[in-house]
Design a protein around this nucleic acid. Structure first.
Length: 379
RNA sequence: GGGGGUGUACUCAAGCAGUCAACGAGGGCAGACUGUAAAUCUGCUGGCCGAACGGCCUACGUAGGUGCAAAUCCUACCGCCCCCA
């Protein structure tokens, strides 16, 4: 099972240094959990993901249910063996797809909304591509049009077959800027589902995290955090939206972490622009996953100590420096901006791999430095 | 030498009298992306003025012509391609 030890609680902030012991290894926290939706960190082998400093990966129940189907993964001996990742693994429950394939797609918005919008989703509203009921969510597969139903039991069953070390309760990730009444109703559903997930069977080594929702509303965030905290979960996930700016985001995170048992790990779902990372850690977050380092890499953006580079820009063709002169990764040791820029402009797939590796290494290094800072009383 | 075809913006390529500064694609440029339907998506891409509607100028091989109006029709010339001798 899961063991979580807080090695040090910062006196300057809510940040803490910890060790998360899973059946497949130990994770030093705080840590970034790179996203491996389809049982792969896109463009990298599992060995490379590890070489980039990744300690734990998160795969997706929804995607693996559709492709290849959990039975193939199970017959391969589980996710760890299937993807050759003999280290800690998480699976997301599919709750995020309720949003990303639903209102997120309809409204053309991400999880976090930039401009002030007011309340744009009302109680009773349904997204176009899927139907949310009290039992679960009916999806239409984008692969072949087939119907897929995902509810708490289904999600748990699939996650049991996949066999990750940490699995998440099936939640509704509600759209940002939904009105209070919508979030309240959604929250009741998510809480009911949380109880169903707790009752469902899972493998002995699997820890179950409950997910706190509540949108941008303080009363609902607190209510959700208290409820999830009162249940026998092994840890917490914090999901949904966090308002329109970073300040409100940190405030909202604070409402939640205040209510959570400090002895259990907290995972923030899907947040992690580089500049967000120190802030969420200071709010008491232990682990967090984010597509940014890998996703942006495939779009040509390198994260470096002095900011970001867009390798698609022609200026980099004549730039012989490494991506980041201060970075000690294998890509920076061996390749120039010029070369990587050329590969991008020539649409060579190796470009994606080189940048993904660097970004991941850079993010992991960045978080490792924060762990150091917590240890040394700097954070 | 005879016959046929063709020449369009950075490139390829549509258009074959007015709705054409010219479809589309590539390239170029700019922007977006936070529990990944994402090696993706969006916008711009002749010049000048304008926030915009729009206006003016220059442009469809070259030079003339017809016509209210030409990338589109006619004449000559130039270049490329194919077939026959």
């Amino acid at each position: 099972m899961l063991e979580f030890k807080v090695l040090k609680q910062s006196e300057k902030s809510k940040a803490r240094l910890g060790l998360l012991k899973t059946a497949n290894g130990i994770v030093e926290t705080p840590t970034l959990v790179p996203v491996a939706t389809q049982a792969v960190v896109k463009t990298l082998t599992s060995e490379e993901a590890a070489a980039a400093g990744s300690q734990m990966l998160i795969c997706n129940t929804f995607h693996l249910r559709l492709k290849p189907g959990e039975k193939f993964v199970k017959s391969a001996g589980g996710l760890h063996k299937f993807m050759n990742w003999p280290r800690p693994l998480m699976t997301d429950s599919g709750g995020f797809q309720v949003f990303s394939l639903g209102f997120g797609k309809d409204l053309g918005v991400g999880k976090i909304i930039k401009e002030k919008t007011g309340e744009i989703v009302r109680l009773g509203q349904q997204p176009k591509l899927l139907k949310i009921t009290d039992e679960g969510v009916h999806f239409t597969s984008f692969l072949d049009g087939s119907r897929l139903f995902l509810g708490p039991e289904e999600s748990m069953k699939i996650q049991q077959a996949l066999g990750a070390d940490i699995i998440f309760a099936f939640d509704e990730c509600p759209p940002p800027a939904a009105e209070h009444a919508y979030i309240k109703k959604s929250l009741e559903r998510t809480h009911r589902w949380a109880k169903v997930c707790l009752k469902a069977k899972r493998n002995k080594h699997q820890a179950l995290f409950g997910i706190v929702q509540g949108g941008r509303y303080k009363d609902l965030r607190q209510e959700s955090a208290r409820f999830i905290n009162s249940q026998p979960f092994d840890g917490f996930g914090i999901g949904g939206e966090f308002g329109e700016d970073k300040k409100s985001m940190m405030q909202m995170l604070g409402w939640v972490t205040e209510e959570l048992d400090p002895k259990k790990p907290r995972h923030l779902l899907g947040v992690g622009y580089l500049e967000d990372i120190p802030k969420i850690i200071k709010q008491g977050i232990d682990t967090f996953d984010c597509i940014v380092p890998t996703h942006y890499a495939r779009h040509g953006i390198a994260f470096i100590s002095s900011g970001t580079l867009d390798l698609l820009k022609s200026v980099f063709l004549k730039d012989k420096k490494p991506l980041d002169p201060k970075c000690s990764c294998a890509v920076c040791a061996n390749y120039s901006r010029s070369y990587i820029s050329h590969l991008f402009r020539a649409k060579e797939i190796t470009a994606l791999k080189l940048l993904t590796f660097h970004n991941l290494f850079f993010f992991n290094q960045y978080v490792s430095k924060i762990r150091e800072d917590i240890r040394n009383n700097k954070v």
